[in-house]
Simulated assay, not measured.
Amino acid sequence: MQGVKVLVTRPEPENTLTCQALSALGATPISLPMLDIRPLSSDAELAALRSQLYNLDLYQFVIFVSKNAARLAVELIDECWPMLPVGMHWLGIGQGTTQTLNELHIPAISNPGNNTEAMLDWLKPVKMRDQKVLIVRGAGGRPDLAKGLQQRGAIVDYLELYKRHTPEYTAQTFLFLERPDVIWATSGESVTNLTTYVDQFDPDLKNTALFVPSERVAQLAKSLRWNQVICAQGADDQRLIAATQQHLGRQHD
Score class of each variant (00 low, 15 high):
residue 122 W to R: 15
residue 80 C to K: 13
residue 52 Q to T: 01
residue 233 Q to K: 15
residue 66 S to R: 00
residue 47 A to W: 15
residue 45 E to V: 00
residue 195 T to L: 11
residue 185 A to D: 08
residue 52 Q to K: 02
residue 174 F to T: 06
residue 92 G to A: 06
residue 208 T to F: 04
residue 133 V to R: 10
residue 247 H to P: 13
residue 22 L to T: 11
residue 22 L to D: 10
residue 151 Q to A: 11
residue 7 L to Q: 08
residue 240 L to V: 13
residue 42 S to F: 02
residue 189 E to Y: 09
residue 7 L to F: 08
residue 132 K to N: 14
residue 99 Q to H: 09
residue 26 G to L: 14
residue 34 M to N: 12
residue 78 D to V: 03
residue 189 E to M: 02
residue 203 P to I: 05
residue 184 W to E: 02
residue 105 H to D: 14
residue 173 T to S: 09
residue 34 M to T: 04
residue 47 A to L: 02
residue 249 G to Q: 05
residue 111 N to P: 09
residue 203 P to H: 11
residue 60 Q to N: 09
residue 148 G to H: 01
residue 87 G to W: 02
residue 51 S to V: 13
residue 222 K to V: 15
residue 165 H to K: 07
residue 46 L to M: 07
residue 186 T to I: 05
residue 124 K to D: 14
residue 154 A to F: 02
residue 194 L to T: 03
residue 102 N to A: 08
residue 178 E to L: 07
residue 170 T to W: 11
residue 225 R to V: 02
residue 62 V to D: 03
residue 182 V to C: 14
residue 69 A to W: 00
residue 147 K to D: 10
residue 216 R to G: 00
residue 28 T to G: 11
residue 204 D to T: 11
residue 20 Q to R: 06
residue 100 T to P: 15
residue 107 P to T: 14
residue 102 N to E: 09
residue 150 Q to R: 13
residue 248 L to I: 04
residue 55 N to A: 07
residue 237 D to S: 12
residue 94 G to I: 00
residue 10 R to G: 06
residue 226 W to S: 05
residue 129 R to Y: 13
residue 224 L to H: 09
residue 204 D to H: 04
residue 250 R to L: 15
residue 140 G to A: 00
residue 4 V to Q: 15
residue 66 S to A: 02
residue 220 L to H: 14
residue 5 K to C: 04
residue 46 L to P: 07
residue 251 Q to I: 06
residue 166 T to W: 01
residue 228 Q to T: 09
residue 33 P to R: 08
residue 205 L to E: 08
residue 239 R to F: 03
residue 103 E to T: 06
residue 86 V to A: 13
residue 96 G to Q: 10
residue 220 L to F: 06
residue 76 L to E: 03
residue 118 A to W: 12
residue 132 K to R: 02
residue 150 Q to D: 10
residue 161 L to A: 01
residue 10 R to L: 03
residue 18 T to E: 09
residue 136 V to K: 13
residue 212 V to C: 07
residue 39 P to Y: 08
residue 57 D to A: 10
residue 193 N to F: 09
residue 56 L to C: 01
residue 98 T to C: 08
residue 72 L to G: 03
residue 39 P to M: 15
residue 23 S to P: 14
residue 156 V to W: 09
residue 220 L to P: 12
residue 116 T to Q: 08
residue 236 D to Y: 04
residue 90 W to R: 06
residue 228 Q to I: 03
residue 226 W to H: 00
residue 233 Q to V: 01
residue 49 L to H: 05
residue 34 M to E: 12
residue 38 R to K: 15
residue 21 A to C: 12
residue 39 P to N: 13
residue 213 P to G: 07
residue 245 Q to D: 12
residue 201 F to T: 12
residue 27 A to S: 06
residue 171 A to T: 15
residue 95 Q to E: 08
residue 2 Q to E: 05
residue 194 L to A: 07
residue 34 M to A: 06
residue 238 Q to Y: 06
residue 161 L to V: 08
residue 130 D to E: 04
residue 3 G to M: 13
residue 33 P to G: 12
residue 159 L to Q: 06
residue 223 S to P: 05
residue 46 L to C: 14
residue 16 T to M: 13
residue 45 E to R: 05
residue 225 R to H: 03
residue 200 Q to L: 10
residue 53 L to P: 04
residue 156 V to Q: 03
residue 63 I to E: 02
residue 138 G to P: 03
residue 178 E to G: 14
residue 119 M to L: 15
residue 33 P to H: 11
residue 126 V to S: 10
residue 221 A to E: 04
